[in-house]
Design a protein around this nucleic acid. Sequence first.
DNA 1: TTGAAAGCGCTAACAG
DNA 2: CTGTTAGCGCTTTCAA
Lengths: 343, 343
Amino acid sequence: MTRIPARVPSAPPTLADVAELAGVSRQTVSNAVNNPDLLRADTLERVQEAIDELGYSPNRAARNLRTRSSHLIGMRMNPAQEGTANATMDRFVHSLVETSREAGYHVLLFTGEHEDPLSGYDDLLRSTAVDAFVITDTYLGNPQATWLETRRAPFVAFGRPWGLPDAGHPWVDVDGAAGADLATTHLLDRGHQRIAWIGWRKDSFIGEDRRAGWSRALKARGLPTTGLASRVEDTVASGREASAVLLDDAHATAFVCASDTLAMGVLHTLAERGLVPGREISVVGFDDSQVAQVVPPGLTSVRQPLEQVAIEVVKALEGLLGHPPYVGPGVLLTPTLAMRGSS
Amino acid sequence: MTRIPARVPSAPPTLADVAELAGVSRQTVSNAVNNPDLLRADTLERVQEAIDELGYSPNRAARNLRTRSSHLIGMRMNPAQEGTANATMDRFVHSLVETSREAGYHVLLFTGEHEDPLSGYDDLLRSTAVDAFVITDTYLGNPQATWLETRRAPFVAFGRPWGLPDAGHPWVDVDGAAGADLATTHLLDRGHQRIAWIGWRKDSFIGEDRRAGWSRALKARGLPTTGLASRVEDTVASGREASAVLLDDAHATAFVCASDTLAMGVLHTLAERGLVPGREISVVGFDDSQVAQVVPPGLTSVRQPLEQVAIEVVKALEGLLGHPPYVGPGVLLTPTLAMRGSS
DNA sequence: TTGAAAGCGCTAACAG
DNA sequence: CTGTTAGCGCTTTCAA
């Protein structure tokens, strides 16, 4: 429970107030807060009592000014795509906020102009408003990482440095190939032979990574992939069209999709044709969005371990901001499969 | 575009650096940044050039310390409920971040312990880490608002002060009754007569507000509501069970639901019975979540104007933090109806 | 219109 | 183990 102080002070108490009440110097109070080991037990206790009595909490601005750190982590928020099923960000942000708090950090959200992936970072950096950034869009050609590196800005990426194998920054990612493999193998175990892939355009590294898992799983059982793959935009409409073609031309009996959005497109096609997902045709999505969880009869989906990602991101952040800074190797986590009625 | 400075300075430039380069005093630079009107045009220009050349941005911590304000708005983030279709928070947070930035504020996210609705606020307040809060859970009996008021903490609520008609704090809310009325009238216009309501338990003020809109719309056409309403938990399973009962016992031909989650429950029932949403039976949800947008054949849903809510919240915040502080009357916004295949 | 002095609350460095 | 001194970078007096 949160204690409610008896009186509401007009101005919050300062270090000096506590020092006076406890009969010690200001520095001793500071030590009591930041390096309790330095104090003798009885002094510490007396100071602690004064702190409790006054309801003292160190002034953040003063501390930030002095220590040249804000204990704030900046994260740029991109608008949630309307009409898609993506819920990754929401879950990740929450996990990050929670994990950061345990490490003594808060998360500062900001936005930037849509066309300019760099806008927003610069101002925060120059005004020393945040200690570090977490970036989430690591598609190839995104200049954020490179730019932040030249500015010597500490940051951790959720996403591999595609195309830059030896990037000097810490990163955490989820193994998309393993996820698609998991999904495909699951369908194979259910007896499916003609399992189609609906993914993104070839220039999406994330999409190609996931696709590789699908083809790997099929090849492991000696099954062909020819004619069973489709690469489209990440929209429901694209998923619907692609699945219609794959049903007609390739006689697919199951679909593995690069996103829940595409998987919903498949469900549209099935609904139009009076096919019941999970009975005649099986479908697996990617991301385990809320949509997957509530749509009838439930959409089987690859679930990213976002809580774990947040933990690793914060761990990397602590290394980065430590003395001396430490940059560990990239971390690749394995997703799981949330099984539901659609398979 | 963001300009990339030629050199990367180890320590960011300060006011003094700019002053020296421009050949003026530090105070003049400060004025150039905060009160440009006070400077003569040519001085201002010279200072501005120096600022640009050095890439100067005022140090946030120092400014915060001096002005006793952080230009940060705190918002507690509650975990996204798994297995529900609620996407309100995500959209609202994004709008808030965007609108806040235009007003010169950033959003600081924090979490609290699950059982204690107060935890998290106290620390931020005492350490003067944020200037104000935005609170979003205004269910009756939530002590946040009252507690913040006794602490004289500035805050704006997204949600009416249910049960406290004359609360002294600014609030912004969406008219749930109007939304349900809109949905119900839409179904009436489509020729439905037996329109059922699936809502939340009676102790939810938000639920009762929305329910009132449904019954109001029916009564306006002289139609009875008896036996057509159900009050359950906000889960897909509850929605499914309730709709099955209402179909059997009340011969409902359409459903208005207090949430998209409940509406998805209805879709489950229809799928089980081989009924096609929008043909035999119509369904309308509430919140226009991503689920509503992508589920076949599309779920008609009441859409809250969250962008507008964010604008009003920030407007209220600016009043609250102005000199002197100004608290305007509560703002009630009207939702719209996103029409899709389910009706 | 510009400049000088003071100090916001804290902690690093050192002295005792 | 505790206290003294200095100063982080900025803005708010007030004086010129």
